[in-house]
Amino acid sequence: MAKLKSKKFLSLDVIAPILVGVTVLLIWEISVRMTNTPPYILPSPLLVSKTLITDWNILFPALLITLKITVAAFMTAAISGLLIAMLMAQSKWIEKSLYPYAVVLQTTPIAAIAPLIIIWLRNNTFAALVTCAWIIAFFPIISNTTFGLNSLDANLSDLFRLYKASRWQTMLYLRLPSALPYFLAGLRISGGLALIGAVVAEFVAGTGGANSGIAYQMLIAGYNLQIPRMFAALFMISMLGILIFILLSTLSNLILGQWHESSLRRE
């Protein structure tokens, strides 16, 4: 009975968004045809998918480069965010002195400081792009993990005190496991932000040559009025973003599956 029900929900979960998507694409295709809109203003979905296939050899390698920047920035953000959060959890003093600067980094528009970073790291464009994406991606991890490290069950912390647990034992056996769900939620947000950061940084940097990412391809396509290619690139970036989100959600469910409320279904 329960199985049947979940299957029905699953199919609704899949069918409803597909239905909306197909309808929107149909309306888009029909209205472009009926109004004779030229492709350099708004290409039809069919033309975009054709372009996606014909330009695959240009777009896909570029996407891989952007992916590389995203992954590097995301990994750096995850590790540095976790370490900084652990450092801040050591004392209220450290937290109070560091946290405002994390906020400052987060609220500074990346498009404004990206040119500076690119100038400073002009010998290594890859590092410059990764740095920009990292600045955007690391804040959710710091803020979530700090929150998690501080939200301890009062009785459990008493228990650790009662048994004279050392600072390190408390960190390892109580605070880190308590923070894990928050850290994973941070990762999920940060994954998407790393991609956005990589794309924005590429736009600002406008790097050319053999190692240019998907955003640079979009930029060039825009200059050349190859609007269908721009749309195809945009589509690929969106798909990559969705893929990153799905991967991180799956990871989170795998890790928390056995114990955390958020991944449980009522039995």
Binding site: N155, D158, L159, Y163, K164, W259
Partner: peptide, 22 residues
């Protein structure tokens, strides 16, 4: 304690092991 105060991420065995581990 008034509540069981167990670590939700640990099995029964690992919860009981805690004082010894510490």
């Amino acid at each position: 304690f008034q509540e069981a105060a167990l670590m939700p991420w640990a099995t029964v065995t690992d919860n009981i092991r805690l004082p010894l581990k510490l």
